[in-house]
Design a protein around this nucleic acid. Structure first.
Ligand SMILES: [Mn+2]
Ligand SMILES: [Mn+2]
Ligand SMILES: [Zn+2]
Ligand SMILES: [Zn+2]
Lengths: 147, 147
DNA sequence: TGCCTAAATGCAAGTATTTGCATTTAATTA
DNA sequence: TAATTAAATGCAAATACTTGCATTTAGGCA
């Protein structure tokens, strides 16, 4: 169970203020657990509790929460970003190009890369996303292509 | 030397038409060699030769050329995409967060991933980008932080 | 060469996200 | 508790990119 109180503590500790808007946003993600939502979907949930919250406040909070790793932000290839509570452990994603389903993988390329070859480049971040078809969607593809 | 005639041949072979607009775009990338440019920069070069070419034509062509791997598209983290002629070999990028310089690397995570573990997921694409600081920018950072 | 048609373009409107700036507010301190 | 102030918010405009639809055009064929 993810407690929004813990998330608030983390924010305070990093010097951010706990605003009414931010509380609602954190609370929403805590209740959604690991479900992925878009900025638009978050906005719609959030205005139920505070009808005058602004879209740019939503975006600014998504940005901060992502940068401090409370949220995870992914591009499912649909022209919109998806957000959800981040796992504590470092991971990447498999993303189904058809249904958008995602799966975390604990493989990380940085463990395999020969960083000795990059003395002249200091790595600070990386992004790996793997796209394809999940089992179910692959089945559908085979069927519709006449097996 | 990259010849735009070769690029045109590739397009024809894949069933695309060679329009006046497309010729100018291909020619521009061929002449720029491996320099990275944004859609805006391309548009500005291209209207010199045909002042009535439309921005959406530029975007649509960038999209097609990227999808068929004639161009490579990267996110340097500045809120705009950069495009350049693609290498023929599969590669990924190191991107400097300060000056935007990029370096191709021929390391690919898919060679290290244990695909046996993903029988239930069919991989068709992947995206790896590594961000950090290049030698020069790292030097500047060390200096400005008081060595 | 002229006709035909699918593909490409132009244009205008739409979408997702970001930003500048004036105002409000959370949290610190007196 | 009231005063202070940096951070956060609201609002409106900007940016980067995409899309629908009417029109044009490349390239195949008679
Ligand atoms: Mn994640
Ligand atoms: Mn590349
Ligand atoms: Zn799927
Ligand atoms: Zn640099």
């Amino acid at each position: 169970m993810i407690k929004n109180k813990d998330l608030e503590k983390e924010l305070v500790q990093k010097g951010y203020k706990i605003t009414r808007q931010r509380k609602i946003i954190l609370d929403t993600f805590a209740r959604l657990k690991k479900r992925w939502i878009t900025a638009q979907e978050l906005y719609e949930i959030v205005i139920e509790k505070n009808p005058k919250i602004n879209f740019s406040t939503v975006y600014r909070n998504l940005d901060i929460l992502t940068r401090i790793s409370i949220l995870c932000k992914i591009d499912k290839g649909q022209g919109v970003y998806y957000y959800s509570l981040n796992n504590k452990d470092h991971h990447h994603h498999l993303i189904c190009k058809l249904c958008g389903k995602t799966k975390s993988i604990h493989f990380c390329p940085l463990e395999y890369i020969d960083t000795e070859n990059f003395q002249d480049f200091t790595i600070v971040e990386h992004k790996l996303e793997i796209y394809g078809y999940c089992k179910e969607c692959m089945k559908d593809r085979l069927v519709s292509s006449g097996k």
